[in-house]
Simulated scan of single mutants.
Amino acid sequence: MSDITIYHNPECGTSRNTLGLIRNSGAEPEVILYLENPPSRVELSGLITRMGIGVRDLLRTNTEPYVKLGLDNPDISDDELLDAMLVYPILINRPIVVTPLGTALCRPSERVLDLLPDPQRGEFIKEDGEVVIDKQGKRVGEA
């Protein structure tokens, strides 16, 4: 059993890049396809708490359910937002990564590097061609 979990959407480039960075560290995470297997209310609330963010901060705003449900209304409670995310998991922003070092919404994908217990093992180039990790396994742009 892996000590790293990613709530993943394979259709999302950021999620794919994050998964790639995890694997580039030598880890094989537990991959939860959250659109097919959404977290329970307790799990989702726990993830939000561990990330130290508000419910609204995890909400994807560029989706049809967000507009249809009028979730931009600031009077909508956190409980109502959670209800919407459970009914429409596409509203949950991703990827969420859980490791022994913490839990975070990994946007941008490089954010996962702060959560990984093991260093990168070699070069990593994001899908858009951006070099994130050099051939020596060092983060590009780090001193």
Rank of each mutant, 00 (worst) to 15 (best):
L58F: 05
L58R: 11
L58K: 09
L58Y: 08
T61Q: 14
T61M: 11
T61Y: 06
N62V: 11
N62W: 14
N62R: 14
T63E: 15
T63C: 03
T63L: 10
T63H: 08
T63P: 02
E64F: 14
E64N: 13
E64V: 15
P65L: 13
V67M: 13
V67C: 09
V67L: 13
L69R: 13
L69I: 07
G70S: 04
G70N: 08
G70W: 06
L71F: 05
L71P: 04
L71Y: 01
D72G: 15
N73F: 06
N73I: 05
N73R: 09
N73S: 12
N73V: 01
N73D: 15
P74W: 04
P74C: 05
P74L: 00
D75H: 14
D75T: 14
I76T: 02
I76G: 03
I76S: 09
S77Y: 05
S77N: 05
D78E: 10
D78K: 08
D79M: 04
D79G: 09
D79E: 11
E80K: 13
E80I: 03
E80P: 01
L81I: 13
L81H: 09
L82S: 01
L82R: 01
L82C: 03
D83V: 01
D83M: 07
D83Q: 10
D83G: 07
D83C: 09
A84K: 05
L86V: 06
L86D: 04
V87R: 12
V87H: 11
V87E: 14
Y88H: 15
Y88V: 10
P89H: 08
P89W: 10
I90V: 15
I90Q: 10
I92F: 06
I92E: 08
N93H: 10
N93A: 11
N93T: 10
R94Y: 01
R94D: 03
R94W: 03
R94K: 12
R94T: 06
R94F: 03
P95Q: 10
P95N: 08
P95I: 05
I96K: 04
I96W: 00
I96V: 13
V97F: 00
V97S: 04
T99Q: 05
T99P: 00
P100M: 13
P100L: 10
P100W: 12
L101W: 10
L101M: 13
L101N: 14
L101H: 14
G102E: 09
G102Y: 06
T103M: 03
T103H: 03
A104L: 09
L105T: 08
C106V: 00
C106Y: 00
C106P: 01
R107K: 12
R107F: 02
R107A: 02
P108E: 06
P108K: 05
S109D: 00
S109G: 02
E110G: 12
E110S: 12
E110A: 12
E110T: 14
R111W: 11
V112C: 01
V112G: 02
L113G: 00
L113F: 00
L113A: 00
D114L: 12
D114K: 13
L115N: 06
P117T: 04
P117N: 06
P117S: 11
D118K: 14
P119L: 02
Q120A: 10
Q120I: 09
Q120M: 14
R121E: 12
R121C: 10
G122N: 07
G122Y: 09
G122F: 08
E123C: 12
F124D: 09
I125W: 07
I125Y: 04
I125H: 10
K126L: 14
K126E: 15
E127F: 00
E127W: 00
D128P: 07
G129D: 09
G129K: 01
